[in-house]
Amino acid sequence: MLDPKDIEAIRAEARHYEDPKAVGVDAMKLAQKRQGWIDDDTLHQLAELLGMSATELEGLATFYNLIYRQPVGRHVIHVCDSVSCWVCDYDALREALKRRLGIDFGETTKDGRFTLLPIVCLGACDRAPTLLVDGDLHGPVTDADGIDQILQRYE
């Protein structure tokens, strides 16, 4: 369910555009910040708020990398798999993360703490290999100790 504060924020944001539909992605990001992911009820509510069909908004939700239509953990880890990180031993980072968390891409740890996802180039290739946790950039992440130091910051 949408929070009244979010509804107000979405309405305010919509005034920056000729058409309120422009805030579709923003609205989903806002709702997601509070509840982690976009469930069907929220999708329908948002669509009504913005004057678009739920199908249209679903088209947006499924198109963009950072909108989740499934539950995620309390923290989402995005690992860059693009070329510069790949050259700088992305394979090793990916395997170390999977081992440490005991999950594969697209999965969430049993305690609901972390979800692991791949992401395209994070625009920080000078710090390769990189990853993002809840929007915070980390890199270079080169060994298991480095991974542990980062993960312990996110309970």
Partner: peptide, 19 residues
Amino acid sequence: SAGRYLCGEETALLNALEG
């Protein structure tokens, strides 16, 4: 935005901006 390489193409970007 919410992440999609094609948003860098200027007309795709305009569609994205329109929602």
